[in-house]
Amino acid sequence: MAEDKSAETIIRTTDLVKKYGEGKAEFKALKSVSIAIRQGEFVAVMGPSGSGKSTLMNLIGCLDTPTSGRYSLAGRAAETMTQDELADIRSDEIGFVFQQFNLLPRTSALENVMMPLSYAHRKRDNPREWCEGLLRSVGLAERIGSLPNEMSGGEQQRVAIARALVNDPGILLADEPTGALDSKSGDEIMGIFSRLNKDGRTIVMITHEQYIAEYAGRIIHLKDGRVESDEPNGDRHSRGRQ
């Protein structure tokens, strides 16, 4: 990710609509969302619950397909892809970080990080060393063989970040990554995100908390399935590592 492609638009949605249910039970989670995110941006998505943040995130993450509208990811039209093509995109282009970490229980940190490799097309020569390196890069050199229930929340989330990076994706999607953490661990996680962003990775993150959003370079507010505001964050790093 060292090469400079900062001008290129990597995520572009056009009039994106997502409906759930049928007839009377129909519910429009996204009414019309058009956003463009360039390679290397760090975007925070905010909004009250029910505003459509998670729906947008699922569409961007290729976990779901839109009811109408267009979505292009790295120049490819994602709205027409089959389930298998979407799975391949998730494997190659996107890393997910979840609020609840979602580590496999009774499975070591290293095995958790290695898990997505078994579904990837590209095979690494030394998968074990590569994954150990990822764990070291998130500060878990001592925790390589630990089980999830032996680790703190912050440590578990760092394992999850290492797992998200295992296929070297260009995009990192985080759904309230600090929502289950205390503020100190939250700051550590955001420190890692800032560093990854500096290395050139595009990051899209949902958050409730203003001080977490401040780490991002751009903040999008959603309300009732529409973009309410979309502004650069002038204040960036004002609350960075203190």
């Binding site: 993450g61 976990l63 389930q83 298998d84 799975a87 391949d88 998730r90 494997s91 190659d92 997910f96 979602n102 496999l104 898990m115 997505p116 078994s118 579904y119 990837a120 797992r163 296929n167």
Partner: peptide, 16 residues
Amino acid sequence: TREIGLRKAVGAHGRD
């Protein structure tokens, strides 16, 4: 179920 969801999110196909 969550494990299955996770595996799919990180790129597992249905057949995997």
